[in-house]
């Protein structure tokens, strides 16, 4: 590489940095504002004056660690995901809004989830306007915006074989105690099958951050996840 290359690259950098680049289009923020008003505002505030209510303020949510608002009283589950490394990005927020418990099993947010991907994008476009650097979002190339593709109805409807689930579960019980003790490692006994399946697929897709669980879930087939879900739900 010649000596002249460096100044040229620097010059380019300066020019790009100086010119205002519009944030990438991700959705209709105006429509998102209405959605927020209808579905979120009872518990959440957003904007310069926003304060914590039933839910934490959503101003500057992008880039924040899960459970990181010091003044808010989060669920144990949310704090655990935060220390595991869950950070709110376009991708993780999209997943969370689609089905909160797929990311944070014991979340206190009582929200069914928003199925429509367009509505979620609109809502996120609205929330993004209250972030520090809207044009840095999405954080990665747009193709990385991926929710839970595996959760097609045919996957959710797989009937698990509890006998197989029982064998597979022996791998879980090295860490997750069957009697439901919840010390350092969450309990999975009596977990509703639907939540179990959503959570395992979120680990499998590496949307949940925990490396042990990503590895464990990563090698489970759809049938095996269903078998485990059926087994754990049936435990008394």
């Amino acid at each position: 590489m010649g000596q002249g290359a460096l100044p040229l690259a620097l010059a380019l950098f300066v020019v790009m940095g100086a010119s205002p680049v519009a944030a990438e289009e991700i959705g209709d923020a105006a429509r998102g504002a209405k959605l927020f008003q209808r579905q979120c505002a009872a518990c959440h505030q957003v904007g310069p004056e926003a304060v914590n209510r039933v839910g934490p303020t959503l101003t500057g949510i992008f880039g924040r660690r899960a459970g990181a608002n010091k003044d808010f009283n989060y669920s144990k589950s949310m704090l655990r995901m935060g220390s595991d490394g869950l950070t709110w990005t376009l991708k993780s927020l999209d997943t969370y809004i689609e089905n909160p418990r797929s990311l944070v099993s014991g979340t206190r947010m009582s929200f069914r989830g928003m199925d429509d991907p367009v509505a979620r994008s609109d809502l996120l476009a609205f929330l993004r306007d209250y972030s520090d650097q809207p044009r840095d979002i999405p954080e990665a190339e747009p193709t990385a915006l991926k929710t839970l593709p595996d959760l097609a109805p045919e996957i959710l409807s797989i009937k698990g074989d509890p006998e197989y689930g029982e064998y597979l579960s022996s791998e879980c019980s090295t860490c997750h105690q069957r009697d439901g003790s919840d010390q350092g490692i969450p309990t999975i006994t009596n977990w509703p099958a639907e939540d179990f399946v959503a959570a395992m697929h979120a680990y499998k897709a590496k949307l949940r951050p925990h490396p042990v669980m990503q590895m464990m879930a990563g090698r489970l087939s759809n049938e095996e996840i269903a078998a485990l879900a059926a087994y754990f739900e049936s435990l008394d």
Binding site: S83, D84, R178, D179, G184, Q214, G218, R219
Partner: peptide, 30 residues
């Protein structure tokens, strides 16, 4: 497939990892 903790991890993650090990000890001995 394998994984290992990273150098330079923050204190919260290291503490969570420690707490997880307590959970594992209780789990495996039970």
């Amino acid at each position: 497939e394998s994984f290992i903790s990273g150098t330079g991890e923050d204190a919260a993650l290291r503490k969570a990892t420690y707490e997880e090990s307590l959970g594992w000890y209780a789990g495996i001995t039970a």
